[in-house]
Nucleic acid binder design. Structure first.
Lengths: 280, 280
DNA sequence: GAAATATATCTTGTATACCAGATAAATTTC
DNA sequence: GAAATTTATCTGGTATACAAGATATATTTC
């Protein structure tokens, strides 16, 4: 289990009770203060955030294989914290469909649901069509130059064979498009779709010539954006994204235990099909 | 606070310890069992699910106004349960952007972030374009008949002036399209977008003649689907969805405290802008 | 020896107690 | 009286203990 370590910081420093409180009147409270500024100022990373980030990273990079048990008690020992924040992190993973919980039995790294995979690819394409079109309309010259720089960095990483940095540049490029199109929220959705597909993508990595091809495709998209040709930019982006849709059968034969085919997996779906299960 | 009550069921039925355990060897465990079947069979609604559902409903129906404090301790008393499941429910609301938490200070029903609203409308349109096009290709005759039935029900509810049932039929119609297009996952995303917009929608409700208009627009969409004209169906759906984009200025003048204009609100954004905050 | 039963001990779900930061009222200071 | 300070008591964040279901091993039964 790489990428996991102890959480530093002073914890469990006990101190005797501050003596008996003198009798004074309580206060009213419960009136909402100026929340806006409040939320901006403070933002300390909680322990659960750290565990969540670590686990998420370990899962999407396949360091934790699908089916691996996620035991809350073990994590408390590894991080030196209690179950409460660990549990919060695990619950967030469940919401991300990265973990499945069997009540009173165990929690496991989620199998890759093929049905969800297919839908995530389609949804992502639809959303990136929006951001690309908007970027073509709104991108400033400086933003376009910034994207060219990202592509150049990606080219350099490709030549260096640095797969991890290459992928980070890839993400940055797509994020820059969304930012230029003024759709930060939609970029977050796209990110979630990417997470769903990420593990599958990693299984398909060793394709010769893939990295230079991606660079060329990115360049083509950006050229269309710079030329303010939105239809062309969208078409090129779609062509780029469609490359991911290889046939899945090969991989599911290679790693049968990594995938799941009937996506009953999820709470949302279970709710709507509950009656069928009760009868059958 | 409507829609909230005690949670039934036997809890806290203590029982003396089963005596000292005799010394026997421990077991190995930690091997993943047949998860797929496991997850299908069991699915009992946890206490946190109930609290989450109730709170979510109260928030999106504006029974709990934006800015209202959500105090975990109060909820424990109302439901007769402990803080742990209450807290889990609240954390899920935070992930849904329906609540904001100020550490050590308070949790509050989230203001409606106008920027998110705009993006949610755009994203929803993009996703429904996908489902409508797919529905046009794949919808069976029975599915089309089912959708006609939904529209008829909606017409009846419109004539009866039953706003709540009307809205439920509206949701059913859009869900039926996604189901016919074989995109249940994308429908879940659309649902999330709807939740984001729902509170705004409720503020704009009293528009005379709105309900019959919606029925006509739904009928137009379905006619295009039945005629297998995907471009027409998409166009009509877009026209239908664009009706929601009224100018926001009116409402933000009427209920200024309900909205928030700078969407720093969210963790995801805060992360990417953290450096700016530190310097400024 | 094989099938059925019993049981120890895993797991997650829940309850409860305590901690530290934040807030507003009470108090002090000028 | 107004501003600064103190202080009680709110809040959410965390630690820990217990409850209840699930599972594999040990035991019994035939």
């Amino acid at each position: 289990m790489a990428g996991q370590g102890e959480i530093s910081g002073t914890m469990t420093e006990a101190e005797p009770s501050n003596g008996p409180a003198r009798t004074r009147k309580p206060r009213a409270a419960n009136t909402p203060p100026d929340i806006g500024r409040l939320l901006q100022v403070r933002h300390t990373e909680k322990n659960s955030d750290i565990v969540y980030r670590d686990l998420k990273h370990a899962i999407v990079t396949m360091a934790l294989e699908p089916g691996t048990p996620i035991v809350e008690r073990e994590l408390t020992k590894q991080y030196g914290i209690s179950r409460t924040p660990v549990r919060e992190a695990v619950l967030r993973l469940v919401e991300d469909r990265l973990a499945d919980v069997a009540p009173k039995s165990g929690t496991f790294v989620a199998r890759i649901p093929l049905a969800v995979l297919r839908e995530a690819l389609v949804a992502r394409r639809a959303l990136e069509e929006v951001t690309v079109r908007a970027a073509t309309e709104f991108a400033s010259e400086s933003q376009i130059m910034g994207m060219r720089a990202i592509i150049q960095r990606q080219r350099e990483m490709a030549e260096a064979g640095n797969e991890e940095a290459f992928h980070m540049a890839d993400e940055d490029f797509h994020a820059a498009i969304a930012a230029a199109g003024r759709y930060p929220g939609i970029w977050e959705m796209i990110s979630q779709m990417r997470v769903q597909v990420e593990r599958y993508r990693r299984l398909t990595l060793p394709q010769p010539g893939r990295m230079p091809l991606v660079v060329r495709e990115h360049t083509a998209v950006l050229d269309a954006i710079a030329a303010r040709d939105d239809d062309l930019a969208v078409a090129r982006m779609n062509e780029h994204l469609n490359k991911l849709q290889l046939d899945i059968s090969i991989f599911r034969d290679l790693w049968p235990d990594y995938f799941i085919y009937d996506p009953v997996v999820d709470a949302g779906l279970i709710k709507s099909t509950k009656k069928l299960q009760e009868t059958g």
